[in-house]
Write a protein that binds this DNA or RNA. Structure first.
Lengths: 325, 325
DNA sequence: GCCAACCATAAGCGATGCTTAGGGATACCC
DNA sequence: GGGTATCCCTAAGCATCGCTTATGGTTGGC
């Protein structure tokens, strides 16, 4: 079995015509070259070099081997370059899976950031809600999954993230969304969930709906859900049209033009933790690692933006709370 | 720097999907595979594998490396096969250089022998007289040189074979060639060189001519050389036509139809040693080594043939000695 | 809930491959 | 023609590498 090291030495000897020159070329001593060549000739089973008076010539077998070595070493170099490009973020691919409100807010920011810093990387995105998207991650169909969990809700066992790398990005809150002419719309104080007990509800994605029911039942009532859709603009439109009220993640509202509705802080706050998930091995893949960092940064920026908006709304309180933002 | 060993392991892991299976495949233990992969990932600078629940998956970098590995390992295998073919005499080339009487007698026999035993080998032949042919050998323009030396003559220093592998093939003798009607033609006893002192001489190749002059001068006369050619049929023709006499190597007569001349043994015998020369390194090249063996065998066969002919001539003595053979 | 398969890690050990040191041959130069 | 520089080989010492065995932890399957 020839080894690449042997071929490098042989090629260098063939090029320079002497062991000493090859040794200088390769950055080692001349006996090292001599030994390597002896080993190589032994492996080949035939001499490869003819020690001429002043120069080193190749035998037929030597020429054949050099001919092959050229291609082999070129392939090796190409491989090294491609791997180095991936390791050095000049290439590489990250496949994201995200739930809708994440892919509308955090992902674009992070992707733009990533593309600016590492233009060679390729990013793809599929939308998938948490249980499914985590399956995809485990099945190798994506590299990073954006997911969320409600901190007050015990995670179901079959959905454990214990074996995953969990990178918190953002702590999201639920907010109430009511028609602009709703009695609660003008109030400065946060709303309690119980105040919506008698309303008609418009619910979001299945997971959120499940959580919502849980929260309401803890507050002592069962919400009357007349309409459910994971299409948040539709939810907002329905609320604006007076069909009902909704309690939505703040992040989900971020990319929706909230016209004709009032957004209310909830008391007590119900928090949703938005995280990026990946497999432990993938966490060390440079492009994945960098993408996680970009997502974390996007999460911070998003949190700051939301915080500022909330602060501005609080300062301007007395009017319509955070309406029409 | 990736090594072929690494790539073999990676490919095996990729194919089998587990370290244990790869270890069985490669004939080593599982920790060996584990360590190799760790080293390879360290060299790559990025993970190559994702340890899935039950199967081993490749990362993007891993897939890229396997893609390259396929070509690289194929190239290595091809190289090994080609070298093995040369080492195993299923391929290979031998370039011969020979003086004319050698290339007309020993070489055809040896080449036929070689081709029969190792049909894959390629043999080429160029004609060249000793000083020049040895230069060719040293310059790498041929692999084996057939040459000869007169054992009674000190070899000139600049033509030393001390650094070469010298393989004796045959001990050739000089014989006298006289017209069939020459006074010496019918005699059973060997001729002495001095008996030709007053003759006109027809000489062979320059080297032989030089030697001939030396031999004659030791015998106390200077031969009157009227004609010199390295074309032995021409020499024989001239002798037959009565232009003069010649003293030629027996081997040179072997391929010449000696019509109209008588061939006389010489007393004392003057011997020419026919040898095959090669460079020490080339002597270990299988095809060269085998060709030397074939040449040696051809030399033996030739010696036997000559011996038998001489014996037959001796038994039939009293008539025309060895005429018209 | 135990068992089997798989992978990681650690320790021991032999092989490999490098280095330095020294010797012989050869071409070049004064 | 002798000195010198270059080149290669060999030997010995030594560090590293890579394999093995032994062992532990984890994960599916029965």
């Amino acid at each position: 079995m020839f080894e690449a090291r042997h071929l490098r030495v042989l090629r260098s000897v063939a090029r320079t015509g002497s062991f000493s020159a090859a040794a200088r070329d390769l950055g080692c001593t001349q006996p090292a070259v001599s030994q390597q060549m002896k080993a190589l000739e032994s492996a080949a089973g035939t001499p490869l070099l003819v020690r001429g008076a002043r120069e080193m010539r190749l035998t037929e077998a030597g020429e054949a081997l050099v001919r092959h070595a050229t291609g082999i070493l070129a392939g090796l170099t190409a491989a090294e370059e491609e791997i180095a490009a991936i390791a050095g973020l000049r290439a590489g691919r990250v496949r994201l899976a995200s739930f809708p409100s994440g892919s509308a807010t955090l992902v674009p920011d992070a992707v733009a950031d990533m593309r600016e810093r590492h233009p060679g990387t390729k990013i793809s995105l599929v939308e998938a809600e948490p249980p499914r998207s985590v399956e995809m991650l485990r099945a190798g169909d994506c590299d990073i999954t954006l997911a969320f969990r409600y901190v007050d809700l015990p995670t179901p066992a079959e959905e454990s993230w214990a074996d995953l790398v969990v990178r918190p990005l953002l702590t999201d809150r639920l907010v109430g969304v009511v028609p602009q002419n709703h009695p609660l719309a003008g109030r400065a104080d946060p709303a309690r969930i119980g105040e919506f007990a008698e309303e008609q509800w418009i619910a979001g994605c299945p997971r959120c709906r499940g959580h919502l029911v849980e929260v309401c039942e803890r507050a002592g009532f069962t919400p009357r859900i007349d309409f459910a859709t994971d299409d948040y603009p539709a939810v907002v439109g329905l609320v604006a049209a007076g069909v009902g009220v909704a309690v939505l993640p703040e992040l989900a509202l971020e990319s929706v033009r909230a016209k004709g509705v009032a957004v209310l802080e909830m008391q007590p706050a119900v928090e949703r933790e938005v995280v990026a998930l990946t497999l432990p091995d993938l966490a060390h893949v440079p492009a994945v690692d960098m993408m996680l960092a970009r997502l974390a940064r996007a999460g911070l920026r998003q949190a700051r933006r939301t915080g500022l908006a909330r602060q501005a709304a609080a300062e301007g309180a007395g009017g319509v709370a955070a309406a029409g933002r």
